[in-house]
Amino acid sequence: MPHDDHDHPHALLPPEPALRVKALETILTRKGLIDPAALDEIIDTYQNKIGPQNGARVVARAWSDPGFKAALLQDATTAVADLGYYGRQGEHMVVVENTPEQHNMVVCTLCSCYPWPLLGIPPGWYKSDAYRARAVREPRKVLAEFGVTLPAETAVRVWDSTAEIRYLVLPMRPERTDGLSEDALAALVSRDSMIGTGLPKVPS
């Protein structure tokens, strides 16, 4: 039997969460198990260096370069690694393409699995009970809460990330974007359009 203890050790720490974190950091630092400077570095990485701008570059490249798009749909891990995107929580990537017939949407019902190297740390709603519970059963109602309404002829395919495969949605390229540079296209790619709860921005 796994250890199911009703007096979990965490209850020995202060109950207020910010103080709980602080207490544990202090204890671990005092014993030399944690270097606070390493924590700062981890935070800086996910706050400032790795985020949805990476995924947007991948999408913009796929929109611009049919060869890259084919490679991306065939073996996303290798294709995005060639652009410099690989690492923790992105070791096994699969990219799924939206079409007029099929809209893709990604969830992790069991925890919060998300393609970190391409999208960074998941937003709060992605980790919420409401999204985890409902995305698989009523994706269209969830999409409506994001302001997205799909045509009746478009089927929804929801990907529940139950293993170490991480999914990125390749949204459809918006109309009237012919001739735009990759940078201009990347600016149209919202984070949520790569999770499947949003659509790309339309050029103004």
Binding site: L39, R134, E145
Partner: peptide, 23 residues
Amino acid sequence: PVEPGSEDDPVFAEEWHARALAL
């Protein structure tokens, strides 16, 4: 309902969230 917020929301809503992840 799901509460989508804004894509411009900070990565970590509270400073201790960042600390908890890094720890």
